[in-house]
Amino acid sequence: MSFNLTTRSILDENYCLVLPKNSCEVFVFWKFSDFKISQFEKGYYLKNIIFRVLDENKNTVADVPCEWARAKFYISLPKFVNSITVELYAENSNGKEKISVSNEINISYEKEIKKEYTRI
């Protein structure tokens, strides 16, 4: 076997999950069920999915498009937030369909002032 990432879930589930990389960037990965993959392959949805990044107050921070088959993506955060959640949307002529909501992760921004501190 090889560790090549695909969007196919061995659990046959649709989900997306997010992990903190640093204060400015998070890692998101997603998997789809066989049925959902067939929908993408048959063109039921557009090629690009959309990640809606929400802050701790559930305000939208950014909408980030990405090709559905990529399986992973790094999202650069446009501003400092305390925590984030990502919603995964697929899109077609009927509009946007929410497929999955990620876990919530905390990201602190306090460290950004680290170098300005004079010790003691």
Partner: peptide, 19 residues
């Protein structure tokens, strides 16, 4: 932060581990 354990070289681990 966590760049050492999570970057383009090693991020494949996490989806496999989760599933």
């Amino acid at each position: 932060f966590f760049d050492k354990w999570l970057n383009d070289k090693n991020d494949f681990i996490y989806p496999y581990l989760y599933e």
